[in-house]
């Protein structure tokens, strides 16, 4: 049984209702959860940056080694060197926050530049860019990262540059698709014929008005991916190195004690990774449905 009901509006009063009023409840929940996570991450990043922490994350307390959550003011307990896990979780955000933003910036700027070149110019530029993106796409990302790590040094910024670059093709193809869609509707040609300079058409009409929601969505998804990359590499020992905390190396360090029944040193960062990445992805998904519209409605 499907129900359809009409707003009791006067004749002449059927204007569009704003998107959040007609949105799926699920999408709104996704987006609010995502926004909550993003706020938490940003606030925690700032707290970490200004050292506004309950404990010093590097303070080794041999007397409090592996104490369970709640012991002596340690909210989430301590790790094998007696360091406060909660504080280390907050500081762990430093490991991915700026590098993640760098990755996102690279993928968005690189992607929209290539996308605009391919879509707006077309012809040879399009062919060249398509070959390039296919080449990048066909390379396993992890292998590329390991190559970079081996050639330079295991620095998170190098890794994030690679993550950003490997995300360029996705953004580029989305932007290009959007431009081709606009071109098909003669939209670009009409702007040219009005006498608008190419710069205005690209920056204002294409990127700002027609690609902004797409880019915001890609940014959230890209950030989630960057976090995943950082934590998994740090877990493997290629990313952030001890004693600097990262959620990845915290899980790794704690994993040795998991079997002894001391689950908290690994579980806390693992859950943090889970909820954060879920937050970014749900935010991207929800925004996609809200701003770009769901298919098959």
């Amino acid at each position: 049984m499907k129900n359809y009901s009409q707003r009791s509006g006067e004749i002449g009063d059927f204007s569009d209702i704003p998107f959040w009023k007609k949105a799926d409840a699920a999408d709104l929940v996704y987006v609010s959860y995502g926004l909550l996570i993003v706020t938490l991450v940003v606030v925690s990043y700032l707290l970490g940056a200004f050292h506004l922490l309950p404990h010093d994350p590097h303070d080794i307390r041999l007397d409090l080694m592996m104490s369970p959550p709640g012991t002596a003011g340690h909210l989430l307990g301590t790790d094998f060197m007696g360091r406060d896990i909660f504080s280390r979780l907050i500081v762990g955000i430093q490991a991915y926050f700026l590098p993640g933003l760098l990755a996102v910036a690279i993928s968005l700027i690189g992607g929209s530049t290539l996308g605009v070149l391919a879509g707006y110019r077309g012809g040879m530029a399009d062919t060249a860019i398509t070959y390039f993106t296919n080449l990048v796409d066909s390379f396993p990302r992890l292998v590329l990262i390991l190559l970079v790590v081996a050639a330079f040094k295991p620095d998170i910024y190098y890794i994030m540059i690679v993550v950003g670059l490997t995300n360029v093709p996705v953004v580029a193809s989305l932007v290009k698709g959007k431009i081709l869609f606009l071109k098909q509707k003669n939209f670009v040609e009409a702007a040219v014929s009005l006498g608008l300079p190419a710069r205005t058409i690209i920056l204002k009409h294409i990127l700002w008005y027609n690609c902004r929601s797409l880019l915001i969505i890609q940014a959230t998804l890209g950030m989630g991916e960057a976090i995943l990359m950082e934590t998994s590499l740090s877990y493997l020992g290629f990313g952030v190195q001890e004693p600097s905390p990262s959620w990845g190396n915290m899980v790794q360090a704690g994993a040795n004690y998991f079997m002894q029944g001391k689950f908290w040193p690994s579980t806390a960062p693992a859950l943090a990774i889970l909820f954060t990445i879920m937050g970014f992805h749900l935010l991207g998904d929800g925004l996609n449905n809200l701003l770009e519209g769901k298919r098959g409605r």
Binding site: K185, N186, F187, E189, A190, Y209, N210
Partner: peptide, 9 residues
């Protein structure tokens, strides 16, 4: 333009 929407962002 023939297309009504062409000129309108």
């Amino acid at each position: 333009f023939q297309d009504l929407d062409a000129a309108l962002n």
